[in-house]
Write a protein that binds this DNA or RNA. Sequence first.
RNA 1: GGCACCAUAGCCAAGAGGUAAGGCAGAGGUCUGCAAAACCUUUAUCUCCAGUUCGAUUCUGGAUGGUGCCUCCA
Length: 471
Amino acid sequence: MKIYNTQTREKETFTPLEPGHAKVYVCGPTVYNYFHLGNARPFITYDTLRRYLEYRGLKVTYVQNFTDIDDKMIKKANAEGITIGQLADRFIAEYYHDADRLNIRRASFHPRATESMPMIIQLIETLVAKGFAYEAEDGVYFDIQKMPDYGKLSHHNLDELEFGASERVSLDGNKRSNLDFALWKKKKEDEPWWPSPWGDGRPGWHIECSAMVKQFLGDTIDIHGGGQDLIFPHHENEIAQSESANGQKFVRYWMHNGFINVDHEKMSKSTGNFFTVRDLAAHYDYLILRFFMLSGHYRMPINFTAELLSAAQNGWNRIQTCIENLNFILEQAPAETADPAAEAAAAELGAARGQYKQAFIEAMDDDLNTADAISAIFELVRAANTAAACAGLDKNSIQLTAALLKELLDVLGLLSTSENVIPAEVMKLVEARSAAKKARDFQQADALRTEISNLGFAVADTPQGPKVSKL
RNA sequence: GGCACCAUAGCCAAGAGGUAAGGCAGAGGUCUGCAAAACCUUUAUCUCCAGUUCGAUUCUGGAUGGUGCCUCCA
């Protein structure tokens, strides 16, 4: 598989450091609110990466943290008169509520920053001892001047960065350089604190991730993922901290996803143009949101509009209907193909399964090209629909096709688990309608169909009899 | 000022140095009591200019337009 590495700006063949075992870390949410569609993108993207790596036979240790201590957490908790722990508990639960429904699998570890305090302190101690960090009046800072290759991920050099920083921020008296960043912030009023060798206080944001990576995955990991806005300074700073402290290469492949835009502008909490997944889920199935997201390449921006979501819904229905239809015709399908037409259909379908599975894998191997992978699924759907129109198609062909569709959808996390349960009440109406139709009482039949749809179900007439599905 | 990214049909979106996947929407048709679903047919010289090449939409340079990062941010 090839992965685009932000650091080298090239697609590289992915080989885990430890054969057969990929170590992946993804920056998780700050748990002070429901997450919005933009936040959901990395969760979905890297969950899909993880599923695919496992599909290809790798063991994956997958870590996604919860940031439960930072300015936003403190502000929100103080505003609500609760502790940051209570705030975190609440929104971690809300995270799982949404994430589970988006088919985002639970990570191997979901560490909370506040639970990694010993490792955070240990890392800072190491950095101070090695001379990469210094203590100032209000905290401990990383000394950028000690890190000559700082900027290697975002491809900035120190001079450029100094210039940019000086244009925007006046030098804070406690720091030696504008670019130095806080590892430890000494206690202020109304802020939670932890004891440390530099007095009571709390960790800086960047060190939390370095600490959790080290604690759960070690000094060198294979893949680190996150949004493009984290490249600088967050990931750059993680590199500075981890490599300076550990003396090892930190991350072998850096992956960064593009943004979700609204009216071609980045969706973000600060600009207020965001849609939470929870709100959208009131109008669209969670998996449609996931499908929508995966229908473009993860590094490209996605412009979000209601129209596009509706279009995604229609495409999604096509896939779901195909699987429903396969399941439906399976019951009455013959065990063996009898006539030549059915035999030909079965042969063609068999070829299509091979061809499109191959296409799916090639697409995913190419830097997780889910858009192409989904079009392979659509082509398989068309092949299945065509073959399914042939009445004599055998059970085995149908089963193999349905199984492959589900297999591929599952790799993308798009396998719907909800079963189509038809209440007895509805079935009764369906039977009554069939009887009315047989008697050529079409008025009565149509009236019953209306009644059925009022109960939330659709009935369609097929050569195999009436097919009922949820509206 | 610096560093990146993007520009493909009405909309969304892949893509390869040799005349463009897929989805949505539209039109026509087949099937159906009607419908639904499905199937078939149909809709693009890939922003512009220059260069490299036998040949570029795909490579290089430039222009124009859009976005992001350089400050919390997925």
